[in-house]
Computed example of a mutant assay.
Amino acid sequence: MERDPFEEYYRQLEPSKREKGNAWNTAIGLQAVDGLKTSDYLKDTAIRNIEGEISFEEAQELLNTYYEHKPVKEDDSRVEEADKVSARIAAILSENAFTFTPNQYLSIHKRLFSGIFEHAGTIRDYNVTKKEWVLDGDTVTYGSALDLKETLEYDLSVEREFSYKGLDIDEVIKHLARFVSNLWQIHVFKEGNTRTTAVFFIKYLRTLGFDATNDIFAENAWYFRNALVRANYSNLQKGIHETTEYVEIFLRNLLLDENNELHNREMHISGKYAFAKKPNIETQKPNIETQKPNIDGVQRLDNVSAISRKQIQMIYNELGKKEFFGRTNVEQLLNIKSFRANEIIKLMKELDIIIPVQGKGKGKYRFKVGNK
């Protein structure tokens, strides 16, 4: 894998450098959704911006000047597109301003593609189909050109009224996966839909308290697009049903710092590119069931999501006999963020399979073992 030119900036103590490095990395990585690659000049310009030598506006002006004087070569137009759109995405992701409205969605497309697409910021006026590798050449059924504005307004209004109160993190992830999949399926524009949707979604996730600018988007942008395709495709004759499972896995890595493997070949509807099948989370159930006598209340795990069930079993296997454990132990064991560790601990408390331990500091627990 090509070395990330912005890696050193993630470790900087100065937040602005770290945040700008993440923004540039995400912006450049998102070009992969359309098979585009940026130039070395763009990366050099990005580093100058991160170092504070030039502003985002100056970086974009440098790119404009560079391409005005650069000799035109075959396929240069797509590199120019990738460079300019990357700079614009990085600038937008570095801004705090955002409104969850259809106008904001259209505005993002206009900012990203002005001077590149004649239709920048304009709703398409004809129906589209796109041959997809992951669908073996078939296409998703996209929104009708007659109803695009109304559909966009409806989807955003439904999400705006939705309450996340009382949902556990698995339910949050599942809901977010369906929301972004539906938003993308509308395909409001002639081109540039995935990049626009990704930027809008990242900005929205921040309003929900998530940090969504990291190397997951940068390194797995094509996976993200293919996952959106699979979330919106059914072929009952072939036994294929739309599923958000791949978007959910992507979001778990993006938002919860999990390390689920992301392979495009696993999503191909033919199955001919898939790796040899490994036991999945569902096939782990029997192992969990055999542990029932060891964990008080574990019978109620039947109502818990498969991923949480697996994580609880891992915690029990490693920490079940310990005198006590805390959030840090869970974070390190599962390689997850503190937010997710707190959610898992809260869930285990609600299931009444762990109890607080006194005299060992705040937030220490042990499993209720040996009870049936």
Rank of each mutant, 00 (worst) to 15 (best):
L112E: 04
V134M: 07
E118S: 12
I108Q: 09
R160M: 09
G143C: 10
E80G: 00
S94G: 06
Y105F: 15
F100M: 07
A90I: 09
E150K: 14
G137S: 13
S157T: 15
H119Q: 11
R88N: 05
V128E: 09
R88S: 02
K131T: 08
D83M: 05
R124W: 08
K130N: 03
G143I: 04
K131W: 00
V140N: 02
E159W: 09
S157K: 14
L106W: 03
I89F: 03
E81N: 05
S157Q: 14
E118K: 10
G121C: 08
N127Y: 12
L106N: 14
T141N: 13
E118F: 03
L93D: 03
V134W: 02
I89T: 06
L135E: 10
L93P: 08
T99F: 02
R78E: 15
S94T: 10
F100S: 04
Y154S: 14
T151D: 12
L156R: 05
N96G: 12
D147S: 14
E81R: 13
V158N: 06
T141W: 02
D83E: 03
Y142A: 03
V158A: 06
Y142C: 07
R124H: 13
V79H: 05
K130L: 11
K84W: 00
L93A: 06
S157W: 05
L135T: 10
Y142N: 06
G143A: 11
A82I: 07
T139M: 07
I89G: 01
A145D: 13
N96I: 01
S157I: 02
N127S: 15
